[in-house]
Write a protein that binds this DNA or RNA. Sequence first.
RNA 1: UCCUCAAUAGCUCAGCAGGUAGAGCAUGCGGCUGUUAACCGCAGGGUCGUAGGUUCGAGUCCUACUUGAGGAGCCA
Length: 486
Amino acid sequence: MFCGTTAGKGFWKLLVKELMERMDNVALKQIFREPGKYLNQTVKVAGWVRTARESKTFGFIEINDGSFFKNLQVVYEEGKIDNFKEVSRLTAGSSILVEGQLVETPGAKQPFEVKAARIVIEGLCALDYPLQKKRHSFEFLRTIAHLRPRTNTFSAVFRVRSLAAHAIHTFFQERGFVYVHTPIITGSDCEGAGEMFKVTTLDLHELPRNEQGAVDFSRDFFGKETNLTVSGQLNVETYCMAFGKVYTFGPTFRAENSNTARHAAEFWMIEPEIAFADLKDNMELAEDMLKYIINYVMEKAPEEMEFFNSFVDNTLLDRLNNVLNSDFGHITYTEAIELLKKEKDQFQYPVEWGCDLQTEHERYLTEKIFKKPVFVTDYPKGIKAFYMRLNDDGRTVAAMDLLVPGVGEIIGGSQREERLNVLEKRMDELGLCKEDYWWYLDLRKYGGTRHAGFGLGFERVIMYITGMSNIRDVISFPRTVKSADF
RNA sequence: UCCUCAAUAGCUCAGCAGGUAGAGCAUGCGGCUGUUAACCGCAGGGUCGUAGGUUCGAGUCCUACUUGAGGAGCCA
């Protein structure tokens, strides 16, 4: 950069001017948070036109630069800017730079506005721009996932999503947890129930076969059959036995043919694991974490939360405040069954000890009986995973599900079976091959301890916090059955 | 995968008992000195999801398929 000796003074002046043009834009968020700092001064802002209204000799443009939920109104007048005609023809979606004085507008809908002295049109928006300044259906917006972040709702959703992710890291880091990146590609073929996505470099049109006629995965990239992970839990348990308190936060893949508003094939999951801890410690951690995330988002994104409360779910803020100010409910599976049996007329499916709770039962518990998040604990061993710790009664395990109104199961977790002989017996009962889990079993052999953990569906938290009712609307580019567009 | 519902202009919808399509918004043009989902006037824009069938005639009735939504199962 400094090698150009032929560049004269004029060149540097131009370069400096160019840099100034780029770098001294003020973020809308700064203006809205500290208007006093900018009032009656010249400011430069850069953003996209959200809506424009024009008259013969003046007009209004609302721009948004993505830094803040609300728009900034810009007024322009004929004679005050040199490109009035072009500016008055601007339509929603165009990108512009604006320079002008920030002034108060007492009595008007907006607190202040910019009186434009200069408007530079950086990118005109084509006339077939699909976003209008009226309400669109979420279904339509899913078909234009590349443009929907420009709408109010998605602007709010994805700013909240970003904040919630940060809140999760802050929560765990402040408490001394170590963030572990567990593998996305996994070789354990019996990691858990659920269909998995295969990972392969084999030519699917000409698969290599062994003598038995089966696909010869020894010729595959990893020399064995591999899949995308459905959970980082087994891997993160190994780090738990070294660091004591750990968590994962990453993408997870399930190839289930699920067609619901709560399931996606690719989603993000948070999985903490704590050593020298039991189910009670586990639930305390889950409750603290959820409250921390909610509180963090409500503090950092009040405008967005107000918007959700007004346009998406008008019970949202009451509900979230209620969660912050009350203790979560606790009930054992056995107690829940007894309670539900008394209300069996309400249900389509029968309630019986040993059967898994149906969605209608879970909803009834959290929405009708408790009216707040509730932990259901100590499920029959027959309906839960092999690694969950067997209770003294010999027929239930130290499992916990957290149910929340509106979303359903948001957390699933357990105390893990740390007794090698009990764990092996359990695996034998279920017909699992212990050789595949040799390293997992080693953890019990080499100084195993009580430990517990859970999985939190990140998108389900976002749904709960925003009131959005479809998981496809809280993931930037959702992957679901028969749909992987963009 | 199962059950239910839907598919009409760029978007949101209307289209009543089968008689070959309408509104609002958006867009274009014109008007308007403070708008705020601005307003007023004019204009362009549709092989009614696809393929069959019934009928003199189908957006409307029937069948299949496709896509989407809601619910269920599975789960986070």
